[in-house]
């Protein structure tokens, strides 16, 4: 038994079994009436609803809608964030003046301004994309700046001794060296964007996966609501893992 507990796979197995055990306890609690089944549906019914929710609630369309919004936000974040970071790196005085503001912007609870976005952009996918963009752009700017400033002196000097033009220096030395750090920023930016996109879909009852939860909750389809939440959480976890993989691939050895 102790040898089993010491094995490499023991902790994940124990973690998973604890989760299953907890769900089983909830199930028993509901069946004996300790937990109100109109507040928490039995886990078995949630699992049973997963298939129904996926097949009957237009998941493919909803998924592609959310993916489209995330892709739009990602594109805007990259197209604005990276050049902005380059600009701040190039002009030191500008950087000194606004870097603190960008950091404050990154920490601000921007999603609270969503009613404002609704007024400006209308209740449309565009609002959701802009919200994703606004919440994800600041980390990309900051990380681009950090990546470019952190390029090793020796690389820059090699470029100089080869008499590269400033543009060549940027394209062949600075940018490739900064890519891993820039991607850290893109990963953070995309996570923030996705959180806000799904959250906003739920809040304004519009579009993809977030709206699904709202709709099922308004129908008072409890097992369906829980199943949809589980589904959305799973989708976000897969998305985060994917980003993490790409980042590891970009910076091997770290």
């Amino acid at each position: 038994m102790t040898a089993l507990l010491r094995s490499r796979h023991a902790p994940p197995v124990v973690g998973f079994l604890s989760l299953v055990g907890l769900l089983a306890l909830v199930e028993v609690g509901i069946r004996v009436g300790l937990i109100n089944r109109f507040v928490v549906p039995p886990p078995s019914s949630v699992v049973a609803s997963l298939g129904r929710v996926v097949t009957e609630e237009g998941i493919p369309e909803r998924f592609s809608q959310t993916a489209f919004e995330a892709a739009g936000a990602a594109l805007l974040i990259t197209l604005v964030g990276v050049p902005a970071g380059v600009l701040l790196h190039r002009f030191t005085r500008l950087r000194l003046a606004v870097e603190g503001w960008v950091a404050a912007f990154a920490a601000a609870p921007l999603v609270l301004a969503y009613p404002l976005f609704l007024v400006i952009f209308g209740r449309s996918q565009f609002t959701i994309i802009m919200m994703g963009f606004a919440s994800g752009v600041a980390p990309v700017i900051l990380k681009t700046l950090e990546g470019l400033s952190g390029v090793r002196r020796v690389l820059v000097d090699v470029g100089r001794s080869l008499k590269l033009t400033p543009f060549q220096q940027f394209r062949m030395v600075l940018l490739p060296a900064a890519v891993p750090t820039i991607f850290v920023g893109l990963r953070l930016g995309l996570i923030f964007a996705l959180i806000n996109i799904v959250g906003l879909e739920f809040l304004i009852n519009f579009g993809g996966l977030g709206q699904l939860i709202n709709e099922l909750a308004e129908r008072y389809d409890l097992p369906g609501t829980y199943a949809a939440i589980v589904f959305v959480v799973l989708v976000s976890v897969v998305f985060f893992l994917l980003l993490q993989r790409i980042e590891q691939w970009l910076r091997p050895g770290s």
Binding site: I195, N196, F202, V232, F240
Partner: peptide, 18 residues
């Protein structure tokens, strides 16, 4: 840490408002 923290790590960044 190895048994339970991964769940927190993955649940942490999901949108809570849902």
């Amino acid at each position: 840490e190895r048994a339970f923290e991964p769940y927190l790590n993955y649940l942490g960044p999901t949108p809570k408002i849902i």
